[in-house]
Write a protein that binds this DNA or RNA. Structure first.
Lengths: 136, 136
DNA sequence: GTTGTTGCAAATCGTTTGCAATGAT
DNA sequence: ATCATTGCAAACGATTTGCAACAAC
């Protein structure tokens, strides 16, 4: 009597205008966005959009694996689309700007003690960006 | 007319009981602590201690370089003593426990684009700890 | 028609701050 | 005596949630 295709018990997710606007905002940015930035950006297309809805959608998009969170010290969580080529982030200590960094140092998975299973990692570099280091 | 020894304009920092209790709490833990955990731990010696004082001291200890913050996704900022041997953190996706990991992958400083000056980094590994991976 | 989703406002959580009292120097 | 520090409570910013109206399916 089930209409389920698979066997997982996921809730059906509806395709709303607001979800689309939120995804579009993220897709249009070349950097991780704050919830408030997503709201502002998506409100250009959907003025009625509320902040709570942004948070609720970010949460479900995160759970669905469509987006991922980017943590930066002392700042609120930012979000970016998932499935981008593997990269990390660099934050300038002077101008606070965040830049994507492609690639990954080798040997990360072998850092953990024996018996540990590493399935992911987060890496952020700090320092001065090209612009700021030439000024300083 | 100045009584300063050097030329920096740092505020004199007084040696209070509460500061000592906070440092003792951090020194006694083998893992990064949450401000509320620090409060609870330090209150055993100093019941009058308030949470605001914990925060204020963490801030100045941080500025003084005596402690450092540990960021973990979805959780509040934790603190640990600085000047420990260089290490990173591993968080188990199953039991959420945080473990110190000694060492560092090579080549981190060379990841940034030319012109960038890297002076620090944060790395956290995720996966299953030894206990959880043997159960799963 | 059913049920997930929305918008708003109130609630919650972590952290900061104003202020008068206190304690370290 | 001076001045940083304290405790408390109020203020604050970010995120979550209750609820009635609403829109996807």
């Amino acid at each position: 009597m089930s209409h389920n295709t698979g066997m997982s018990a996921e809730l059906p997710i509806k395709n709303t205008r607001q979800r689309h606007a939120i995804e579009a905002a993220l897709a249009g940015a070349r950097r991780p966005l704050l919830p408030a930035e997503i709201l502002a950006s998506a409100q250009q297309a959907l003025p009625e959009l509320g902040l709570a809805t942004v948070y609720r959608n970010l949460k479900s998009l995160l759970a669905a694996g469509a987006i991922q969170g980017v943590e930066l010290p002392g700042a609120a969580l930012r979000y970016e689309l998932a499935h981008q080529p593997h990269h990390h982030h660099f934050q300038c200590r002077r101008c606070q700007q965040v830049v994507d960094i492609p690639g990954c140092p080798p040997g990360i998975a072998t850092m953990a003690p024996p018996g540990f299973l590493v399935d992911g990692h987060a890496l952020t570099l700090y320092g001065l960006c090209a612009a700021c280091s030439s000024v300083a």
